[in-house]
Design a protein around this nucleic acid. Structure first.
Lengths: 211, 211
DNA sequence: TTGTGGTTTAACTATTCAGTTAATTTTTTT
DNA sequence: AAAAAAATTAACTGAATAGTTAAACCACAA
């Protein structure tokens, strides 16, 4: 028979106060950043007393750090897998664009959050939030070099290619409200426009790199 | 003879306290945002007493608003000129990329500032900060359509083309610290990498749109 | 010289907000 | 059911920081 004590789960139960606090903090921090977020607002959204925030998470900084880690750890493994896989290049790029645009269109505030965080506290970010193992894009780079050598790709620095792809995927979602200014689009047309991005980016990229 | 009184100039003298305050505020707000900026830090950077900030600019919000307007009004006319000019398309794209990358590499914090501001107070932004006249990209769109009809350009929605170009220009500079993670580049290599962007983006775009 | 208006400052007040405390309620254990 | 532990709250404290005030300073005119 099983007499091992049930360990306190590292992730709190789905509808516990602890979890509701975390979810509220997630929303608020990602949308407003560390300075813009107020503990009272987080408490209100979670529907609990402000003292509970400190009961479960000690301080604003600690809570923020946990949220930041969660954000990174949700996205990072997916990106790592996409970049480090050894699918053939064309398929890899296709998958990358599809996944990445899915990811960012579901979480449009995340890239902005990461970039802002990274600008304000680069040290903390690299030391405590980011996983020790950075990405290894060398497989991707080697694949690109190989296809160039074979003549199935025009010459291009693989680093630039990767950055180009990422830029095309992320930027329009991050800068969504800017599109209203630049293109003169209203919200409904804007949603339509963004839904076309997957196909558009793929066409654009493949045309740009064919020999 | 001229007996009209000399009006108080709308822009204060170059080395006045008023101007030094504004410059300091500009730096601090653009880098740290409204919430991250502290009035004391602005005063310190301007080398004056904190009370002077309120003497000249009433409140933090007012000062912030003036800075935001100045930022927009510096960038907007340049962009408008680039987009609305009637240079032939190829030259227009070339100029656009060159100017835009120059602009953003000299002011890497500005796009982030604008996007953040736009996310937090879209109403204020559209009502008080932005010039009444939005951009008119229709000339650009027409040019693209024309070249497609002539067969000198592959079919592509002009809106997507414009967004693609802007994304490729802005994003790498905004996300500069992310490149360290994605590409594994250290600061010196990173500077080198970014200096190659102008040439790279032009090659990439023109290859992507040729028939 | 002295009066006047604009400029600048040191010292102060008010507010906002993170964090604490001590008491109360709820849940779990015996 | 009583005792113990955990969860939750209202009310408080302290620190940071936006904003005010009143006095000092300065330039310049009468």
């Amino acid at each position: 028979m099983d007499n091992t004590p049930v360990p306190t789960p590292p992730t709190p139960a789905a509808d516990s106060a602890e979890q509701r606090i975390f979810d509220a903090a997630h929303e608020v921090f990602v949308q407003k950043g560390l300075d813009g977020a107020k503990m009272q607002e987080i408490a209100d959204r979670a529907g609990i007393n402000k003292a509970l925030l400190h009961y479960y998470y000690r301080s604003k900084e600690k809570l923020y750090e946990m949220v930041a880690k969660a954000v990174i750890n949700r996205a990072f493994p997916i990106i790592r897998q996409l970049i480090e896989s050894d699918d053939p290049l064309e398929q890899k790029i296709t998958r990358f664009i599809d996944f990445y645009i899915d990811l960012v269109s579901r979480n449009p505030f995340v890239p902005l959050f990461v970039i802002t965080e990274l600008n304000k506290h680069p040290d903390r970010f690299f030391e405590t939030i980011l996983p020790k193992e950075l990405l290894k894009p060398s497989i991707f780079f080697a694949q690109v070099e190989a296809e160039i050598a074979k003549g199935t790709l025009r010459p291009i620095q693989p680093q630039h290619l990767l950055v180009n792809i990422v830029s095309l995927c992320i930027f329009p979602f991050v800068a969504r409200p800017m599109l209203r200014i630049v293109l003169g689009l209203q919200p409904p047309e804007l949603a339509q426009f963004l839904s076309e991005r997957k196909a558009e980016v793929k066409k654009f990229v493949f045309q740009a790199i064919k020999p």
